[in-house]
Design a protein around this nucleic acid. Structure first.
Lengths: 251, 251
DNA sequence: CACTGTGAAACCGTTCACAGCG
DNA sequence: CGCTGTGAACGGTTTCACAGTG
C-alpha cells in the first residue's frame, strides 16, 4: 500500500491471518449487539448471519483464537466479546490524534464509533491558525506546531490523517518522527513510511470507482452485444500503443 | 460483506480479477499525476513505485487489460489513462446520491475527489425536515420522501449511505427498490441486499481496530515476556469456555 | 539491451465435509 | 444429536524468473 513496508510479513509464528483480523471487528460488533439483548449463546450459523459471512469461515476464524465454543451448543456471547476485545487490543484505551480538521476531520471527531470502543480522541490538529482554539466535537483544535508535543505528552501511537493530499506525506513524516506507528490515511495519496509503521488507507473515490466498474459490467451485460449505450470498445483489436490515442482525458 | 450476495462470483469468462480491479484506481491516480506533469511514458518499475505496489504485480494487472506497453520502453501515459478510465467505466458520468447529510454526509458532498473523476453528486437526501432546502456544498438538501422520485428522475444507479446505523437498512431497501444497484455504505451495519446489487463498506472504527491489533502486537513484541505494560493474557492456558469469564465488557 | 508479458511456483484464503465431542 | 473444530481440496493472488520483442 505505501512504498515502505506496510504491514509486517504476517508470518509471525503464532500469527492470526490478516483476513481473519479484518473480520474480528465485525464479529465483535455483532456480538456486542447480542450482548446488549442479553443473548447468552450463539451458534456459528446465527453469528455468521449477523456478521454477514458464512459459518465455515467464522468457525475457521475462531479456531485461530483457540477453542472457545461448546460443541452441540455454540459460543458464549460474553466470553467471546472479551476474547476478541483482548485479541484486538481493545481492553486498553488508545489515544488517537486527528490531523486536518476540515469537513472530514470534523466528521471523524464527531463520529461516535471512535470514542465508544477502545479509542479516545486525544487531540485535533490543524494547520490553519484561525482554527486554533475553536472547539470541534468539544475538543479545542490545536495548531500543527504543537504536533510533536501532543504526540509525546499523550503517548499517542495512532494517527489519523484527514488533510488535503498535498499535505499528507509531510504530516505523516512528522507523526512518524514523533513516535506514531499506526496511521489511518484518508488523503488520496500513497504514503511512504519506514519499516514497522502500519498504514491503512480509506479512499472514497477508489471505492466509487470499483463500484462503477461493476455497474458498467451490469449495464454491458443486460444488453450484451447491443449497439448504442455503453460502448464496450474493442478489447483485443487496437494493440498499437500510440498513433490512435483517443483525445479523451477529462482534464 | 452483506448478507445477500455482494459481488458476483468474479468468474465471468473474460473477467478481470477483483484484486486487479481494486488497484486500477490507484494506477489511474498515479498516471493522472504523471499526465499533468506531461510525462510521456513510464516503466512498470516507476509507475509501480508511484502507486505503491511492486512492478511484477502491476505488469500482471495490466496484462489482463491487454498488451498496452512497449517492450524496452514502457507504457504510454495518456494511452493507459484512457484505457483504464474506460475499463473502470469513467468515460461516462455516474450520478450519485448521498443519503444522510450529517457531518460525514456533508464531508462527502464537499469532497472534491467525487466530482472530479466520473462522478456527479445528483442529490443530497436527509430525513430531517429542518435540513430540507438548506444548501450543502452548493446543493440543496432534499427530504427522504423524494428519494424514489430523485433516483428515477436522475437515473441514479449508485447510492452512498451516510446515515446512522439504525436507518441504514431501511434506506438501503428504498434505494434498491427505486433502482439503485451499487451502494457505498458508511454506516456501521451489515446491509442485506438482493442478488445483483453490489455493496462496498467503509467502516472507520473497523479500520482503527485493525490498527490497534497490530499496534498491540508491536508493543507485546518489543518487550516480549516482560511483566507490567500490555498484559498479553494467557493464549493457550484457559481453554474452558465458561466459569472464569473475566468481568470486562466496556458497557 | 531494457523492458514487457507471462507461464509456473509459492502462497494465502475460502469452502467442503466430516470426525469428535458435549 | 447438534454443533464445533479442523484436515484436505480448491480457487484466487502474488511472486518468481525468464522468454520474447521493439
Amino acid at each position: 500500500m505505501a512504498t515502505g513496508r506496510t504491514h509486517r510479513p504476517a508470518t509471525r509464528s503464532r500469527g492470526i491471518p490478516e483476513a481473519t483480523v479484518a473480520r474480528l471487528p465485525l464479529y465483535l460488533r455483532a456480538l456486542t449487539a447480542l450482548s446488549e439483548r442479553s443473548v447468552p449463546t450463539v451458534s456459528s450459523e446465527e453469528l455468521a448471519a449477523a456478521a454477514g459471512v458464512n459459518s465455515a469461515k467464522l468457525r475457521k476464524d475462531f479456531s485461530y483464537l483457540g477453542s472457545y465454543g461448546t460443541r452441540g451448543v455454540g459460543y458464549d456471547v460474553e466470553y467471546l466479546v472479551y476474547q476478541i476485545s483482548r485479541e484486538l487490543g481493545l481492553t486498553q484505551d488508545w489515544p488517537v490524534v486527528i490531523v486536518g480538521i476540515g469537513n472530514l476531520g470534523a466528521a471523524l471527531a464527531n463520529y461516535g464509533g471512535f470514542a465508544s470502543r477502545g479509542f479516545r480522541v486525544a487531540a485535533l490538529i490543524d494547520a490553519d491558525p484561525a482554527m486554533a482554539g475553536k472547539p470541534v466535537a468539544g475538543i479545542p483544535v490545536q495548531h500543527t506546531d504543537e504536533l510533536e508535543k501532543i504526540i509525546d505528552d499523550n503517548g499517542v501511537s495512532i494517527g489519523v490523517i484527514a488533510t488535503p493530499a498535498g499535505a499528507a506525506q509531510q504530516v505523516c513524516d512528522r507523526l512518524v518522527a514523533a513516535g506514531v506507528t499506526s496511521i489511518l490515511n484518508f488523503a488520496p495519496t500513497v504514503l511512504s513510511v519506514p519499516d514497522g509503521v502500519d498504514v491503512r488507507k480509506v479512499d472514497l473515490s477508489i471505492e466509487l470507482q470499483i463500484l462503477a466498474f461493476h455497474e458498467q459490467r451490469k449495464a454491458g451485460e443486460e444488453a450484451a452485444g447491443e449497439p448504442g449505450a455503453v460502448p464496450l470498445a474493442p478489447k483485443e483489436s487496437g494493440k498499437g500503443p500510440d498513433g490512435d490515442v483517443p483525445a479523451v482525458m477529462p482534464a
